[in-house]
Amino acid sequence: GNIGGNMWPMLAGIGPVLGEGLAGHFIDPNGVEEPWFYINGAARLNQNNIVSAPDPYELINPDPKVAVLLDRAVISSGEAIAIAFKGRANTRHFGAASCGLSTANTTFSLPDGSSLFLTTAYMADREKNLFGGPVMPDVPGGGSEMITAATDYILN
Results as ranks from 00 to 15, higher is better:
Ile3Leu: 14
Gly4Tyr: 02
Met7His: 13
Trp8Ala: 14
Pro9Arg: 05
Met10Gly: 10
Met10Ala: 15
Ala12Thr: 10
Gly13His: 08
Pro16Gly: 04
Val17Glu: 07
Leu18Ala: 15
Gly19Met: 05
Leu22Lys: 08
Ala23Leu: 14
Ala23Phe: 03
His25Val: 03
His25Gln: 12
Ile27Leu: 02
Asp28Val: 12
Pro29Cys: 00
Gly31Gln: 09
Val32Tyr: 13
Val32Asn: 15
Glu34Cys: 15
Glu34His: 14
Phe37Leu: 11
Tyr38Asp: 05
Gly41Glu: 03
Gly41Asp: 00
Leu45Trp: 12
Pro56Ile: 10
Pro62His: 04
Val66Arg: 00
Ala67Asn: 00
Val68Ala: 10
Leu70Pro: 09
Arg72Cys: 07
Val74Met: 04
Ile75Arg: 12
Ser77Ile: 05
Ala80Thr: 09
Ile83Val: 04
Ala84Tyr: 00
Lys86Asp: 08
Lys86Tyr: 07
Arg88Pro: 02
Arg88Ile: 11
Asn90Ser: 01
Thr91Cys: 11
Arg92Lys: 13
Arg92Glu: 13
Gly95Met: 03
Ser98Gly: 08
Ala104Arg: 01
Phe108Lys: 12
Ser114Glu: 15
Ser115Glu: 11
Phe117Cys: 11
Thr120Pro: 07
Ala121Ser: 15
Ala124Val: 06
Gly132Arg: 00
Pro134Glu: 03
Val139Phe: 03
Gly141Ile: 06
Gly141Thr: 09
Ile147Pro: 03
Ala149Tyr: 01
Ala150Ile: 11
Thr151Gln: 08
Ile154Thr: 14
